[in-house]
Design a protein around this nucleic acid. Sequence first.
DNA 1: AAGTAGTATGTTATAAAGTAACAGAAAGTT
DNA 2: AACTTTCTGTTACTTTATAACATACTACTT
Lengths: 162, 162
Amino acid sequence: MSQPFSCSHDQHDHCVDAALTAAERLCREQRLRLTPLRRKILTLIWQSHRPVGAYDLLEILQKEGRAAPPTVYRTLDFLLESGLVHRLATRNAYFGCTRPGQDHAGHVLICESCHVLAEIDSADVVRQIDASADAFGFEVRRQTVEVSGLCPRCRQEADHAC
Amino acid sequence: MSQPFSCSHDQHDHCVDAALTAAERLCREQRLRLTPLRRKILTLIWQSHRPVGAYDLLEILQKEGRAAPPTVYRTLDFLLESGLVHRLATRNAYFGCTRPGQDHAGHVLICESCHVLAEIDSADVVRQIDASADAFGFEVRRQTVEVSGLCPRCRQEADHAC
DNA sequence: AAGTAGTATGTTATAAAGTAACAGAAAGTT
DNA sequence: AACTTTCTGTTACTTTATAACATACTACTT
């Protein structure tokens, strides 16, 4: 799987394939059921490196038959709980996890211009947050870190425009 | 203003007063209008060190006459833009800013048990996130950091329960 | 292979969070 | 006072998410 910020359209099938392979493996190992619906939704989420809204997913499903919100949300719940996707709180949207199975904080960078998202996995950030919390006597259970700004590609385009 | 995690009920009026005084000063300096409605909502938000939902505020307003969502949201927009309150993305809720006027990232610790919230202002965390993003060539515009876990007080109670 | 327990999905209705658009009121300016 | 700008009221609506119950599928037991 290439880096989201440098993944081009013709490379992208690899990302989807890799994500599905990883999902199959994880579900086999943890005795979870990757049903057709779950596989479908996971695939849809991986169609781009952008977060996708629940109702976007619903709309796509509805083009191929009837579907209602709970179907989507239940499937998302499964994917979230099994760690195959994460939720982007600042945008009420969902995106595929790049390292399912591995315990990690799920910090992300998200581009305000093209909306491409990348998970960063900075142990330094995690530690620094833990340390800051610790100074308050606070016990950290979950870190939500969502950084918005400009991805390298959009930055370059912005420069050229000047 | 005492630390949220150690602020007791009988100290708390100081927090509200301090917040209002700071708000008045900020609005005077920046030629913003702290109208009765805005002052009212800000006061309601400061009634506790917990984040408050927009519809909670609405419900309170409705006990003293008619009110509708846009009234609340517009007022929140003003308070957000002027930096007097922040929004907690992970909970769709709002809380008073402890250092309005000063430029800062607005990182928070929030207790899963008692829901008390504290702004942390760790320059180290900010720098570490900037550095991590920089390694990707990503230009940071906004950092959202929301850490959930157990505050010192609830931690102690959890210990006693054992 | 039939029964059954558990898990997954379909379906209807509704809750919770947030916004658009226009009308009227208050404040600030000339 | 006339005018402009800003603020608030009001109605209607959009978006996001969930509750509750019905049906279908899977996997295990015998």
